[in-house]
Amino acid sequence: MKKLIIAAALVAMTTSATAQTIRMGTEGAYPPYNFINDDGEVDGLERELGDVLCEIAGLDCVWVTNDWDSIIPNLVSGNYDTIIAGMSITDERDEVIDFTQEYVPADPSAYMALAGGDVDVDTGVIAAQTSTIQASYIASSGATVVEFASPDETVAAVRSGEVDAVLADRAFLADIVAESNGELVFIGEVNIGGGVGIGVRESDAELKAALNAAIEVVKADGRLNEMVKRWLDIDANY
């Protein structure tokens, strides 16, 4: 409870009197983190969480989607103000942008392949999305990496046999495996990367503080744990 009060006080301090419009940038192609639902709206864990954070921080939030490939350049040039797109906090990214504290804990990445195949993940041909921690991991693991622009294409490549397996966040692959009628299976896991945080411009210390404080609130009152469990099936224990 004490944590909650401190967090609430921090929020009050960092929020200016007038509601500021914050443009929330996401990819919209990585369910259940973020996706465009059938109504054409951004949906998923990050939409729900983002809206809650904005409400707590008293910010007026608008959602915009951007290609994963150019998501960081468009943040630093000011087309939107945050990246909330399942982006793992890495040193490499941290040099260019800043991250809030994590809102999804480090979760093992998983390999998924066609059932019945005999795939060696250390020597085979593995698909991953461009500019992800998974892509750089495969490149350093000795396997051959094939990069795709969108997450959906990596899965399609496994189905068509173009690659032996795909490496991605387990939560993204979980539904695909579960609904493939046994066609696709998990064949391994690997621990890479840290938690997932919201990316902000390095010059935007005020926004970072406001979001950090808001994340602190949802962590303390258990809402974040519930959301992460429901959307990603991960026990966060914040």
């Binding site: 192609a29 369910p31 259940p32 639902n37 059938d38 290609d67 150019s70 399609a156 695909i176």
Partner: peptide
């Protein structure tokens, strides 16, 4: 789409991609 304008090819790819039960359809 490089410039953030969603054209017919973007939507065709987005709609055609496989959808799990997280989606309504």
């Amino acid at each position: 789409f490089l410039l953030g304008v969603e054209d017919i090819v973007y939507w065709a790819r987005e709609l055609g991609g496989s959808k799990t039960s997280k989606f309504t359809y």
